[in-house]
Design a protein around this nucleic acid. Sequence first.
DNA 1: CTGAAAGCGCTTACAG
DNA 2: CTGAAAGCGCTTACAG
Lengths: 361, 361
Amino acid sequence: MSRQAPTLVEVARAAGVSTATAARALGNYGRVKDSTREAVKLAAERLNYRPNELARSMITGRTRSIGVICGDVHIPFFAGVVRGITDVARGRGYTVLITNSDEDWETEVESLGILESSRVDGIIISPSDPNRVDHLRHWGEGGRPLVMVDRASARFETDAVVIDGPTAIEAAVIRLFDLGHERVAIVGEFSPDSEVDRLFEALGSEVDGVGAFDFSPSITRLIGYVRAHRTRGIPLDESLIVRSGAYSIDAAERATTALLAGDAAPTAIVTTDNSMSLGAYRAVRSAGLRVPEELSFIGFDNQDWTEFAAPGISVIDQPSYAMGQAAARMLLDRVDGMDAPARILTEPATFIERGSVAPRG
Amino acid sequence: MSRQAPTLVEVARAAGVSTATAARALGNYGRVKDSTREAVKLAAERLNYRPNELARSMITGRTRSIGVICGDVHIPFFAGVVRGITDVARGRGYTVLITNSDEDWETEVESLGILESSRVDGIIISPSDPNRVDHLRHWGEGGRPLVMVDRASARFETDAVVIDGPTAIEAAVIRLFDLGHERVAIVGEFSPDSEVDRLFEALGSEVDGVGAFDFSPSITRLIGYVRAHRTRGIPLDESLIVRSGAYSIDAAERATTALLAGDAAPTAIVTTDNSMSLGAYRAVRSAGLRVPEELSFIGFDNQDWTEFAAPGISVIDQPSYAMGQAAARMLLDRVDGMDAPARILTEPATFIERGSVAPRG
DNA sequence: CTGAAAGCGCTTACAG
DNA sequence: CTGAAAGCGCTTACAG
């Protein structure tokens, strides 16, 4: 019952050849007489032989596996990305190891270590902090490929698949301005404060010169918010920048509730991701505000709930599955030896119009 | 730049000891003088040494990795399960390989082969068909552990983590009956037809004798639907059993639309999973039915959209994250050598009351 | 076309 | 407490 799995040695013996020949016959490389190859394959078949990938990997130095470090597979956006990655990987004969960082840098470093020990051939990551990427650069040295997804870093030039978050936010805010809204709030993580300050310093003079990949994801999207104000000549009111301080629905709800209770209430809200959307929208409902009559709302990420809310929520949609696929393709091309300058692939973010937006009455 | 990763040999040399001693010091086993251990650890640290798990696995015969075969990581329920699995696995030093079956048996078999070649120490699977499990039994022979999640099989006695679907459905239907509804429809995959027929044959005489693990998941839940009717003495109307024929939102929408357009319309609907809920609810909206005034609705799986729909949708909640955790714990206990009879762990399904249910007017 | 032999990077009895 | 040595199951020059 608990028989050991047959090894190459046994196959070779059964076929009456050396292990070297058996390996060549099974691996379809080197020269082997046809009749010998047949005999070996027959023996392998009869013994139900499965090569030990571990032993093979030790020699070839490749495991035919890739690692993923995402914020949290449980979040729909990442779930879509992961599905895209696993589908492409499988199609090319690779397995996928999944880890979560919970957007925590220490956890990310630990994840990288785990994947490194597992000797994955490459890594796809949504880095928790684009300014602390030394560990990723170190991985990249030695020619081990790494692709970023959903984010990129100005401090580490490597392949990446992103959407143009700032532009998507800018378009959404301008849309609201053009409907007569002047007090448009934005709800995002926006932490730490020092980074937001750094962004505003950078934005002080010019807008276009500020790199989208110098800041963490939510702060990056703030660039679009600021650009929209400048484009339409509407003064920026920092009290409308709602900092949840954490990627959590509850934090977003609390922060938004505080905003709505204040005396500088907005007439419209945009958000920077699905968790912020959920929290902000809960706060809006709890405050008893009618959407869109009293408040317009644009969410980020086209999740089921935005379709079924009444009215439906207008959203900025991200092609998570396609992003995962693209990232996996880029990574596996590198694993297969493709040599080319690092490139950043920008997937389209599309606006989905639903009933949550109306002209300022 | 492309320096090879340091090996144990280099660490040992740097620390001035043999590889055997270095291995013992790093692995925290065997006897090593404290000062020696310190020296080795320091050297490992300085060289940024990471053990090659492949080499270790070749010897120990264990990879410290587990494989998951789920329907689709992109589906929220499975995403929750996977997160639960990865958290527990990580806590115990294991990595997780993810594959999807898309509820297709051939794909499942292929996934199993991939995981087998990867030499995972154990497998967690939501089997696509509880009646075709020979490949799983074969894996189980040789003492390789396997835990089923969300489903179990009468044909393969192994550990499993499930909820009591039939009882949850039964309670939901009875709740509706007690509110005066007599025409309660159920929307599920329910395919193939021959299996539904087999269920009804089995249910012909007695109800309690029918095993919940003899049928595929959605058909299993039908048992609760039938039980509810018998308990309340309400005649079964097979036209109220809506067979989508596939685990797809669109299929559920089409099938439900056909039901609502017919002349045997229901006054209430229950569903068997989140995809069916989404499809059925879309059909209800498109038909212009007011919920709950004209139709009561109970969904399966507490996803965000059910909270934000107006009115909120009452649902049967499944603790997906806890189920994933429990499955991983059971599996790793087996991997660690625990010997005990196979057991089926039933996690609680809870009813969440929202506004979508009302008495029959 | 085939085989003997070295070696991938570890772990593990076995001596000392 | 420590080291020399065998070995896990393969692949791969190197000879023949």
